[in-house]
Write a protein that binds this DNA or RNA. Structure first.
Length: 417
DNA sequence: TGACGTCAAGATCCG
DNA sequence: CGGATCTTGACGTCA
């Protein structure tokens, strides 16, 4: 059983993917972007290994315009060593990676050209996994596509186009129920015709339930039957609705108690769970820590990342957590994250936020230049008088963190959540 | 024709 | 000039 996150890692320096506009996508530009992005991916892989995260979705933007402009570039040769090293790290650490072309990759379109480009997009995704040297348990997740007012013929078109895909794509492709057109029963039906493993997405099933309503556990066990041994263990997508946004929007973080309730009802506790959530790795670590009996060290590490954020919202909660972590033989994981979640719902409090900013500033005040101290003081006073917003103050602090290479601060969630 | 979703690039504004 | 903030892009479908 692994829990993972998609694409980005919050609070991880040097992990940013870069891209460019189509009109600027010269070979030199693309090569330099790819080089940057492979280094970013390596940072993320290393981070995952360090944190015991064994499930991860690689961003489709790894190679900018990978299925169009970059098709003519021999990036696989040029960066073969990097890919080989990355693939080794993934394999050595038992990590399982995936890729997920977005909603604009439509294999079942009636338009020939759209299908042609979908195939190229899938080939590009498979090429990444191929050159990483990863087997068919590392998957490519795809939605079925459009409905076109006639779902039955659209399903047939999906199957017909699927048959024309390369073996490399076929052995990795898995299909997912979507939030508006193809419900889990539709997807299971397509799977039955073509033998494609099914990824069940709980939130999509909420917004687009199948006509014969059933529980998550039931659909997960049905989807589980579509996985063969060469596919690796069954994988699902899990997300929660953002209460403040439109239907289907992913929540800012995973509410732990709701997740644990879901987890307990799983037919098989061994399945892999890909979280789809705004705070990415942050929620993945939360859920991993909650499900595994780790040492209190794991919570102390989390605390070092959360502390200024907690201090900013509630000095009381800050003390509460300090007390909670005093007993080194204890592992109060649920209590810890429940305090964190409760604090996140609190509104901004200017004196508290100012106090936290002062603590962060304390990291630099002995090394900052006079000019930097002056700017900080000015920003701080403006913030106290409500003339500037908190993010502006934090941005200056983050700049200082970068300049003075304060690793402790640079990883802190204070700047990223 | 705009909304959808995603993220960074690019453009523009400000001191 | 650097930094902050706003707009655009790239994709296909659907209302």
């Amino acid at each position: 059983m692994s829990i993972g996150y998609a694409c980005l890692a919050l609070g991880l320096p040097n992990s940013q993917l870069r891209s460019c506009r189509l009109q600027n996508a010269s070979p030199d530009k693309l090569y330099s972007l790819i080089q940057n992005n492979l280094a970013a991916l390596e940072s993320i892989i290393d981070y995952n290994i360090d944190n015991g995260i064994e499930l991860y979705r690689i961003s489709s933007d790894l190679i900018p315009f990978g299925s169009s402009v970059a098709l003519d570039l021999p990036w696989e040769n040029r960066f073969a060593e990097d890919f080989s090293r990355l693939g080794q790290k993934i394999k050595n650490s038992q990590m399982r990676v995936s890729l997920h072309p977005g909603q604009y990759t439509v294999l079942n379109s009636p338009k020939e050209d759209v299908v042609r480009r979908a195939v190229l997009e899938l080939d590009y995704h498979a090429a990444i996994l191929d050159i990483l040297g990863l087997d068919s348990s590392h998957k490519i997740i795809l939605h079925i596509g459009g409905g076109y007012g006639d779902k039955e013929s659209a399903k047939a078109r999906f199957l017909k186009n699927y048959e024309q895909l390369s073996d490399s794509v076929k052995q990795r492709l898995i299909i997912e129920n979507d939030g508006s057109i193809y419900n889990i029963e539709d997807v299971l039906e397509i799977s039955a015709s073509a033998g494609i493993p099914v990824v069940y997405d709980n939130l999509h099933n909420q917004t687009n339930p199948s006509p014969s309503f059933s529980t998550d556990a039931y659909w997960i066990s049905q989807a589980g039957k579509t996985w063969k041994s060469k596919d690796g263990c069954q994988k699902i997508h899990y997300s929660q609705q953002d209460p403040d946004k439109s239907v289907g929007a992913h929540s800012p973080t995973i509410e732990l108690s709701v997740f644990l309730d879901f987890y307990q009802k799983l037919p098989d506790p061994q399945i892999d769970i890909m979280l789809e959530v705004k705070d990415k790795n942050v929620s993945a670590l939360k859920c991993i820590n909650a499900l595994s009996r780790r040492e209190i060290k794991a919570l102390e590490k989390e605390w070092s990342l959360y502390k200024y954020l907690i201090l900013e919202k509630s000095p009381q909660a800050y003390q509460e957590i300090r007390n909670l972590l005093k007993n080194k033989d204890d592992y109060p994981v649920l209590e810890f994250y429940q305090i964190v979640e409760r604090v996140f719902d609190l509104d901004m409090n200017t004196p508290y936020a100012a106090n936290a900013a002062e603590h962060v500033w304390g990291h630099f005040k002995n090394q900052a230049t006079k000019a930097e101290a002056l700017v900080y003081k000015k920003n701080f006073d403006k913030f106290m008088k409500d003339e500037t917003k908190l993010p502006a103050l934090k941005r200056q602090l983050l700049r200082l963190g970068n300049k003075y290479k304060d690793d402790y601060l640079l990883h802190s969630y204070y700047f990223y959540l």
